[in-house]
Design a binder for these strands. Sequence first.
DNA 1: CTGCATCCATACGTTTGAGGCATAGAAGCT
DNA 2: AGCTTCTATGCCTCAAACGTATGGATGCAG
Lengths: 296, 296
Amino acid sequence: MDVDTRVLRYYVAVAEHLSFTRAAQELFVSQPSLSRQIQRLESEVGAALFVRTGRQVRLTAAGENLLPAARRILDDWRQAVREVRTSEAARKQLLRIGFVATGAGPLGRRARTVFTTHHPEITVEPKRFDWGGEAQALRQGLADAAFVWLPTDLSGLHAHVVATEPRWVAMAATHPLAAAHDTVSIMDLRDEPLMWTRKAPQEWVDWWAVNPRPDGSTPLWGPENDNVEEMLEHVATGNAVCLGTKSMAGYYAHPELTWRRVTDIEPLRIAVAWPHGRTNPLVRAFVETVIDLAAL
Amino acid sequence: MDVDTRVLRYYVAVAEHLSFTRAAQELFVSQPSLSRQIQRLESEVGAALFVRTGRQVRLTAAGENLLPAARRILDDWRQAVREVRTSEAARKQLLRIGFVATGAGPLGRRARTVFTTHHPEITVEPKRFDWGGEAQALRQGLADAAFVWLPTDLSGLHAHVVATEPRWVAMAATHPLAAAHDTVSIMDLRDEPLMWTRKAPQEWVDWWAVNPRPDGSTPLWGPENDNVEEMLEHVATGNAVCLGTKSMAGYYAHPELTWRRVTDIEPLRIAVAWPHGRTNPLVRAFVETVIDLAAL
DNA sequence: CTGCATCCATACGTTTGAGGCATAGAAGCT
DNA sequence: AGCTTCTATGCCTCAAACGTATGGATGCAG
């Protein structure tokens, strides 16, 4: 009679993809493991949820009927956890500001400073997340507001674009390109292995990698990584190059690393974002501070 | 971010009893295990749910806020599973009739016979449950209708009393009481260890054991058991005596067992019951068959 | 019609975690 | 101060969830 929300997530994923293999990939579990969990769920509820006919998978009537309940339970739980976490932070007079890597650069720091002078009783906690994690964190109640890097999935969130940053490329100091030019073109990176991550959605990875390239080609993929530090370790070692922001060129300038401006790709857009639903007045105040500063 | 509904049940139980020890007893888990699960839940949601102050346990604000969501999720899941199981049975043209031990005796069998002649396309499946399990089975969608033995918790169920049965007592054939009388009084059983179960609610156990006795005394408790067969094994071995129905005296008459009518206790009331909510017309038809037969 | 590719199920070994028992530690009562 | 009551911690056991390797069925192409 008991279920784990994990199993419900598995079920919804299979129902959405109508494929165990693809759902397993999305869920970062093996296909056999996923099959077992679905079998277990089916025996628990006493009915087959999917019809597997060799080549294709489709929902049974029971599968269709259970699906809304599974979604409802997942939403209910996510929202409940988000509210508890958010209230707990509010109770402790905390304002948790999520960001990735350099976040919004100088704007973020100025906003925190200004906010703190107006609300000295509040502790503002900058919270660093892995690639794509800042938007996720808002949905999970792990941050109250965040500087999110676009493009990303903004469902469930309010967002205002407050800054843009030119994109730069990082490479090992010994890299030939570093010696050759002060600036580079995206086409100069055609044969360079590029860093990527499975933490962020595909859309995000493609945008950063400029995939497809202006000439229609696909980037050469290098090692995977979860966050800036890991990424730059790889790059300094010479395994790959990576794209980043102008701020990153300043913040993460170590001797083994060389940064160059990329002249011909669009800049990063950065938004301040916060979750839908009842909004803590402090969150709104912080967002307004950011927007005001951005307008200067 | 994931939870098991089991953990939510634990949480709700602790919140209702405001005691880990008592909740653990109700849930049939050890107190340390329960404590650990609650700790785990608390770290998952990022807030303490209970304040433990040595002598007493009370809910925190976060604990109060999470409670409705936990209850909602549990109800949602129970209902979803019940509906899937019920629809699946309907799809297979099954009508599952729950009962305990001898159920409603001859009435149950006659009702199934009559129903089958009117609905030959339907397979009627008598389903036997452990003590107190027939009402539970209706709530869990494991039966479509059932003969429930009163008193029991009827929440979520419709019920009509359709029969009563005098109560008899079973003892080992070698038992002194068996030789002495044709009938016995409840007071004759004062010093006899009586069978009991933890499957059914306390109310049920007390009613069967006639606790307290007319003179205010408490029965002497014998071995525990889950169902008729286990109970009668104990009784035949001479470990205890047990109370049962007149039907049981006929159905379960083996040589090592002697049954005697108990003259001075109220008879068992038996109801036909079915779950709240959308009701399959076949269920209603069966219930009406039972009620009609009972009226004869 | 045969070989190949695709996709889900099964087998098996490994690891995580939920449970029980014993016991420590804290709080209130006598 | 000692006793009782209640929750937390340490340690062990066992079930189950996961991954890798592989089997088996289906559909497509040559």
